[in-house]
Nucleic acid binder design. Structure first.
Lengths: 106, 106
DNA sequence: TTCTTATTTGGTTATATTGCCAAATAACCA
DNA sequence: TGGTTATTTGGCAATATAACCAAATAAGAA
């Protein structure tokens, strides 16, 4: 794998990594149902607002969400709804894993 | 977000995290073109075999690939080809990001 | 301007990840 | 059996991530 190729996969990894956290996956899921401000998400998640804000900036830097300031509030919007299709695949992976573990116990 | 919900997103995160690394993304891409043994992947990647082996075990534990021992070699097979569809989406995210950065420079 | 609300940023600590080396394991061959 | 090849495992050091708190910033209201 040469430098250029590694750089290419590294760029892809930035986007994938941005979603590789339970809180950020929850945020993406929540935003797929419509925009939400940081305060609403903080309430839903039940963590420090600074923590939620940092998770949002990871998603924003990866191009997955965008923000929009209105008054004192900042609303976040899912910019790339195509990521949602991926979750069906992820859930299939999980189902197969559980199936396999069941076979193993038998 | 209650305990159960967090556990659900944590499970999803295990699968996403398994792909959140340039080398593992490369492996998935490579395996989508057919099975390969650890030795072949090590040659292609140009890293220590133990490193490649560990990356493969992350993908295996997440249910994304499976392994098959034949003689002294271990072949890895992409078990969940649906993850490939996701890359089209990731590449779209990247394209939009670059577009945005271009606008910003202008 | 001062107060309040919403959000981000900086700093710190705890934990997780990554990559290498060396050693252990496993299967085949002579 | 002993040797060779392929792979995995354990351990270590370097780096990255995540969560909290406190402080800074930004916009609107009094």
């Amino acid at each position: 794998m040469d430098k250029k190729m590694f750089a290419f996969y590294k760029t892809r990894a930035v986007v994938v990594k941005a979603m590789a956290h339970p809180v950020r996956l929850y945020i993406v899921d929540e935003l797929s149902r419509g925009e939400k401000c940081v305060c609403e998400l903080t309430e839903l998640i039940g963590m420090d607002m600074s923590t939620v804000s940092k998770h949002l900036s990871v998603l924003k830097n990866a191009g997955i969400v965008q923000d929009e300031k209105r008054g004192t509030k900042v609303f976040y919007i899912l910019r790339m709804p195509c990521v949602m299709n991926f979750f069906d695949c992820v859930d299939n992976v999980i189902r197969e894993l559980i199936q396999e573990q069941l076979e193993f116990i038998k």
